[in-house]
Amino acid sequence: MTELNMMQTVQIIVADLKDKPGSLLPILHAVQNALGYVPPETVPTIAKELNLSRAEVHGVISFYHYFRDTPAGKHTIQVCRAESCLSMGGKELENHVKTTLGIDYHETTTDGQFSLEPIYCLGNCACSPAIQIGNDIYGRVSTATFDEILKEKSA
């Protein structure tokens, strides 16, 4: 996407949502849904339209784990680190995922295919351990099933 298109997209989103009470989070969600991240160069536009300072908008973006200011890989893999998954081999799965992808949390593979993020509970605790890729959720994930899922997603 060219920078011009990017700015236009953001302007349309802001114009559409800015009259909602407490509109900043809905706007940031819409921007991230459209662009995959919240580009730092769009912050001044968002701030101006909402009559906020750039620092305030940046502060909100950086406060929430979900918002990102750099593009993610094609697929974002979220591995649950919470207690229920830990009790069912989550640590081994986590190590396997990191080794297989060759990256740590908050990193993206060099081919741009996968980003890895930790997550604290997917509400899938009765089917632990769990991971999520995009909006697809997976339960009772073993190292072997993870390899299969990865193959599917790489295809």
């Binding site: 407490g22 509109s23 989070l25 969600h29 909100v60 979900y66 997550i119």
Partner: peptide, 20 residues
Amino acid sequence: QGAGAYVCGEETSLMESLEG
């Protein structure tokens, strides 16, 4: 929608988040 902050389950933090 929230944005991945556990503390926003605390009611006053949640309201701050709803206010943007």
